[in-house]
């Protein structure tokens, strides 16, 4: 579904990603783990066009998308729930969700049933249903995270990029986020998940990639990575 080959990207003159290659097969949940500054967020930003890749190939559904502007990439079916949630603060919850379906409503992606999908999101995230008329900027951090995920899902994406959905949330909410991810996986939503909670991410994922200083240093089935002594020592620590 999504194939990344030797992706190089960075900011200004600083190279952050050094030939990152990874694969996200259809229906799979792939996680990208690594310490702060390893380049996880930068990888997602380069995939969705928020920054332009310097070199390498990004192929979605057989078509090269590297270097396209973000709105073109979204129109090809990539949804990105970005770091920091980035909800539209001055708009109500419901409008945030409708904007997630902007490409469908305006005809650049198959329309499907937007209203039914809206209801599906409200069923998946009942807190959002209660607050559908409330301005997104007044939601709590956990609610904003749910909104960011739901908004991305409203694209009916071919691939969903999730950047640190657990960031800054209370432990109970972190569990809720991971159970939501597990439910989406059960519905065969293709996902690339970036997470700081490596253990939890590997528990739920099919495949994993370990990123270190902008390079993939280990990869494989999530269960194998979890038992890899080097990965355990570096990322899973005593917590697991």
């Amino acid at each position: 579904m999504l194939n990344v080959e030797k992706l190089v990207a960075g900011y200004g003159k600083v190279e952050v990603l050094r030939e990152v290659s990874l694969d996200v097969p259809e229906g799979a949940l792939v996680t990208l783990i690594g310490s702060n500054g390893a380049g996880k967020t930068t990888t997602l930003r380069a995939l969705s066009g928020m920054i332009a890749p310097w070199s390498g190939r990004v192929v979605l559904d057989g078509a090269e998308i590297g270097g396209l502007p973000p709105h073109e990439i979204a129109r090809r079916g990539m949804a990105h729930s970005p770091e920091g949630r980035r909800v539209f603060a001055t708009l109500p919850v419901q409008d945030n969700l409708l904007l997630g379906a902007f490409t469908r409503i305006t005809g650049s992606r198959p329309k499907g049933d937007v209203a039914a999908d809206l209801d599906r999101m409200f069923a998946l995230f009942p807190r959002l249903a209660e607050r559908r008329a409330q301005l997104a900027g007044t939601l709590s951090g956990g609610e904003q995270q749910m909104l960011a995920m739901a908004r991305a899902l409203m694209l009916n994406p071919r691939v969903l990029l999730l950047d640190e959905p657990s960031m800054g949330l209370a432990p109970r909410l972190v569990e809720e986020v991971f159970s939501t991810v597990a439910r989406l996986k059960a519905e065969r939503v293709t996902m690339l998940l970036v997470e700081q909670f490596a253990a939890a991410a590997l528990d739920v994922a099919d495949f994993g990639y370990v990123l270190e200083n902008g390079r993939v240093t280990a990869s494989g089935p999530a269960s194998a990575l979890k038992n890899d002594p080097a990965v355990r020592a570096a990322y899973l620590g005593q917590a697991h």
């Binding site: 928020m50 709105h71 979204a74 603060a89 001055t90 409708l98 904007l99 902007f102 908004r151 694209l155």
Partner: peptide, 25 residues
């Protein structure tokens, strides 16, 4: 209108609006 909401979204957060498939330019 959805196009009007896209304008407001761009005003809120241009990068995030781009991720929605909105041509912010």
């Amino acid at each position: 209108s959805i196009h009007g909401k896209a304008v407001v979204a761009t005003a809120n957060d241009r990068d995030a609006a781009g991720l929605m498939g909105i041509n912010t330019s």
